[in-house]
Design a binder for these strands. Structure first.
Lengths: 194, 194
DNA sequence: CGCTGTTTGTACCAACCGGTATAATCAATT
DNA sequence: AATTGATTATACCGGTTGGTACAAACAGCG
């Protein structure tokens, strides 16, 4: 068997992610993708199959590399309150560093859910559920440590925090400045005060 | 001068809004629009000028008819806490009644801000600012009535509530069920407890 | 070298894109 | 009935859409 691959598939996927992330699925053309990925049209279809398949792959990879990795890292922490703060503050920091105001690829796609196929909907649903679950676990951990009063209902509060996070990420796309995002982060923490 | 108009421009605009609302600007074609508006291509360009101009008009009209109208109605209320609750609960009700899960046209467009022209960005910015201002006023009104403790900072809390609202509206697009939306609404009210 | 499989460039496809043009039809005022 | 302007249907424009086809160049293995 001769030489089995030349370009880096993951690198090409990450470059495709950048375009989908900013413009969304429909507004991104195959010409946009081949230019950004720096591979030929033929190679793209050979390696990924279709635009939809590439989008699916890009979204899943983004979700794994960013959201899932972060959550699994913070889950290990024993201070629940600190873990939640770090999670929110990380996104404020991301917004501070990103001059392009891309926000969150997952949230962007969640906004477009009614126009997405079931596989994508499933990916989004799992991601959001996992975030909520993370919040719930950290709240319960904080309660066991005595940092969070027992009057705070874990499930409902986790859901409310997820909503704040989604809002923060959407407003990061050019609708809010850094001070506003910090106010959102601090507001989320106030939900833990009972 | 002969008969000055035949079709109802506002009605046609509302029909265009439905399509833009669901699919977004890019994914909506002129064919989609003429079909939904039930007017001819020629009439559309004669009456609205371009796709962009139609979108702008549809968005502005939607914002006036729904968000602005609701806020101005609730502003008159003398119970600040009740006004905020009614505002949130109205969107939960809207989600309950809408089988298509359209969410909010303004929030959808805010998500797409990096790809929108300055006029649209301005409209979105004004709308979000007005909502935040509404929250701030109602918080201050609640504090004067003694319903909200003075430890609650009006501006920061209003910003946090705006984020929860944006999250609620985005999650209404198929990512969350009614109970989850109710938890978000109740979580927002907890921000007023100090 | 010869075989294999990838990459690349290019050409091509039918379909659609936003937008324009035109001629016929239509309704209401004069 | 004549005039006026909006509405309609249809055809058309150049450009782009996602996707396919194909030959040439390429790189590794036997």
């Amino acid at each position: 068997m001769p030489w089995e691959k030349s370009f880096d598939v993951d690198l090409a996927t990450d470059r495709a992610t950048e375009v989908f992330w900013k413009k969304g699925y429909e507004a991104t053309s195959m010409a946009d993708l081949t230019a950004a990925m720096r591979i030929n049209k033929g190679s793209l279809y050979n390696a990924f199959g279709s635009k939809k398949a590439l989008f699916d792959r890009a979204l899943t990879r983004y979700d794994q590399k960013t959201r899932a990795a972060k959550i699994n890292q913070l889950r290990a922490q024993n201070d629940g309150v600190a873990a939640i703060y770090a999670f929110f503050d990380g996104f404020v920091e991301e917004a501070r560093k990103d001059p392009r105001n891309l926000g969150c690829f997952v949230v962007n796609t969640a906004q477009d859910l009614p126009n997405q196929p079931p596989e994508i909907a499933q990916t989004i649903h799992s991601a959001l559920e996992d975030i909520k679950e993370f919040f719930r676990e950290m709240i319960e951990k904080g309660q066991q440590a005595g940092d969070i009063p027992n009057t705070v209902r874990p499930e409902e509060t986790a859901q409310a925090m997820l909503s704040m996070l989604v809002g923060l990420r959407l407003l990061s796309r050019g609708s809010a400045g850094i001070p506003a995002l910090e106010a959102i982060r601090d507001g989320a923490m106030r939900l833990l005060k009972g």
